[in-house]
Simulated assay, not measured.
Amino acid sequence: MSETTLSPVRAVLADDERLMREQLRSRLTEVWPELEIVAEAKNGLEAVELVREHHPDLVFLDIRMPGLTGVDAARQIAQLPEDDSWLVPEIVFITAYDQYAVEAFEQGVADYVLKPAERERLVLTVARIKKRLAQRHNGGGGESAEAAPAETGQAQPLQQLLHQLSAKLNPGGAPKYLQWIQATVGQAIQMIPVEDVLFFISDEKYTRVQTAGVEALIRKPIKELVDELDPALFWQIHRSTLVNVKAINGITRDFRGRQLVGVKGLSEKLEVSRSYTQLFKGM
């Protein structure tokens, strides 16, 4: 992405400490003078509303904020509706604690800044963000019409990182994920093992639960399922779609360059929205 030919990257800063916001804004002005900071939030709820209002490309979220933590705010931001002109923003977490700088940050799905923001670390963060924004703008890279199946761990989904951070913020044992889905099949209610589900896909009212032999319906939306399913097993590839990683048999591109996920045993293809193309980077 060339910054000379595209509109300036727009950002929202969220930190409950005014001095920290001012310090980060100052450092960002030094290392990324083209960046346009469109709004600042004092808490997580305000951050979500400002992202909804301003549609930034990037949001800096303090991990610990009153009302709504940065992690919970990121969950809500990740589920905001996209359109052709706006994608869910890239996330950078702000933290005063090294223990939150988990390995997942280094895998490129999100980044972090330690308080107070040091110039050298911020330069690295900015370089990573620019690279990810360029890849998103270019459709995720890769000109090949067909690609091999994704490998778990090749690119960690955002929801997996959020689960890890949430566990660190709220220690108390391993999270308990859904094991069964109670769904409507015809006129009957059926209990479906989660591991048998190939994918979930939502419309405005229902979520379709697809297994190898059954198509069922539930009323639970994707934004709730994201937090209840094991993120190592189910990846969100679109605002309306979760796919079982073990069910992916390949990634193709259509004539418009969109990534499509093939599902084992089915002819149906699942579209990957531009916000999630990094899950299959290099494909």
Rank of each mutant, 00 (worst) to 15 (best):
I77W: 10
R18Y: 08
S26K: 09
L80I: 02
R18S: 04
A41M: 02
E53M: 08
L45M: 13
E53W: 03
F60I: 13
L19C: 04
F60W: 14
H54K: 15
E30C: 01
R25E: 15
Q23R: 13
L58P: 10
F60P: 06
E36S: 12
R64P: 01
D57N: 15
S26T: 10
G44C: 08
A78S: 15
I63Y: 05
A39R: 13
T29D: 12
G70S: 11
L28P: 06
Q79L: 01
T69K: 07
E82M: 02
L24W: 08
V51R: 00
I37R: 07
L61E: 09
R64L: 12
E17G: 00
A73Q: 10
T69I: 00
R21K: 11
A39L: 10
G44S: 11
L68E: 04
M65D: 10
Q79C: 12
E17I: 07
V51S: 06
M20V: 14
D57C: 04
E17W: 00
R52Y: 07
D57P: 04
E40C: 05
A73P: 01
V31S: 10
E53F: 00
I63D: 01
A78I: 00
Q79T: 06
G70A: 14
A73S: 14
R75H: 05
M20F: 05
R52Q: 15
E53T: 11
P33G: 14
P33T: 13
E34V: 03
L28A: 09
E40I: 01
R52S: 14
L35T: 06
L28V: 07
A74L: 03
L80W: 03
E40T: 10
E46P: 02
L45F: 08
R21M: 09
M20P: 01
S26G: 03
D62V: 03
H55Y: 11
P66W: 13
V51D: 08
V48M: 10
I63H: 04
A47M: 05
V38T: 15
E82T: 03
L24E: 12
I37P: 05
G67T: 03
M20N: 15
E22D: 14
G67N: 04
D62Y: 01
E82S: 00
E36W: 03
R21P: 04
E36M: 08
R18V: 12
L35V: 06
E36H: 09
R18H: 02
P81W: 11
V38L: 13
I37Q: 07
R18Q: 11
V71Y: 02
R52P: 05
T69A: 04
R21C: 05
L61H: 07
P56I: 07
S26Q: 13
Q79D: 14
P33F: 11
R25I: 00
L28H: 11
P81F: 08
E49T: 02
T29Q: 15
F60M: 14
P56Y: 10
A73L: 11
R21S: 07
V48N: 08
L35S: 10
M20W: 00
Q79F: 01
E49G: 00
T69S: 15
V59Y: 10
